[in-house]
Design a protein around this nucleic acid. Sequence first.
DNA 1: ACGTTCATGTAAGCAGTTACATGATTGT
DNA 2: ACAATCATGTAACTGCTTACATGAACGT
Lengths: 190, 190
Amino acid sequence: MSLRNILLGMLSQPASGYDLKQSFGESLGHFWDAELSQIYPTLKRLEDDGLLRSKREPSEKGPERKVYRRTAAGTRGLKAWLAAGAERSGERLTWLAQVWFLGQQGDLGVALSFFERLRDSFAADLAGLRAIEERMREEEPGYPDALPDEMFFPHLTLDLGLHKLAAKVAWCERCVVRIEARMAAATASA
Amino acid sequence: MSLRNILLGMLSQPASGYDLKQSFGESLGHFWDAELSQIYPTLKRLEDDGLLRSKREPSEKGPERKVYRRTAAGTRGLKAWLAAGAERSGERLTWLAQVWFLGQQGDLGVALSFFERLRDSFAADLAGLRAIEERMREEEPGYPDALPDEMFFPHLTLDLGLHKLAAKVAWCERCVVRIEARMAAATASA
DNA sequence: ACGTTCATGTAAGCAGTTACATGATTGT
DNA sequence: ACAATCATGTAACTGCTTACATGAACGT
């Protein structure tokens, strides 16, 4: 259901399915991704429902493209989705479930390495986002608060990503320290 | 794939499918949930694969129960899952995608109310987690660092939830302020 | 008798992934 | 000639949700 609305949102400019897949990677991809095999049928259904309309156009390189444009009904649909408020449907965080059960592993060393690797993974993501932010700060005039709306709201998602990842790295770090303390306590009492 | 491992983790004590569904609600439910219609066939497959074994037992109230126990192979499987490191498979955060497109709504008032409602929703969740933490702090001796492993690691997930939600509430609050500033700037220039 | 909780399942359908099929154009 | 990129799709499968079917025990 959500992919429909996301594609609708991405089509503020005309684009083909292939184009849309590319834009996922660059930007939105941080919190949503979709495969071409899912994008194509979804675009078709949106057209059947009158929210998009397509035109075949020759490509500059490669075969013919099918370029989609949002209709007035499509824009209304997008606005309605946004006006209805945030869709906070259940997150499924596998790695947190793993943390929950980590005590059953038996070996605190495994738990320790789990958190060290998780921290590194979050830290790498954080470095990636920081690089994006620096580029924005240098290249985009008026960054961040004088950006036009269509860049300001994406910036807000970047801002949250930065804070969330920093919180996660700090949490992993605290977990490492606390587990080390438990390991020390265990050997001391033995 | 993950539900298999999660059920395996939950079965440190023998339990029926019905029992497991109840425990989701109380604890793990904050970052994972599953329906009975998914739990029953998954338990059956785990038994077919030799990771669980079941015994029919009379219930104290109601019909006969099917109680599952983890086999040695099941425990090995769980440990292997945990030792393999964190599974950070792609989050899909619909509400963040909505924020991304909020600039296309046209009406900054809609964006403002979007963030106000989102902030309230996060704040309510945060209050819920804080209540759980206070109860733990009062009722569990040694909370948090002297808890036994099987309670310490769940506590870590609570700790992260607290920090993440606090960060989200603060972010929403900053978004509200910044959007109000944009609205003021727009009316001033008009 | 009737509703609630306890208890286990099946069936239909949707969302998403992986694998496969097809073919044009460009660069080496 | 061959690989890479461009471009659009279909098919099979997995994970999960919603709806349905069945029935025992308990309280009122």
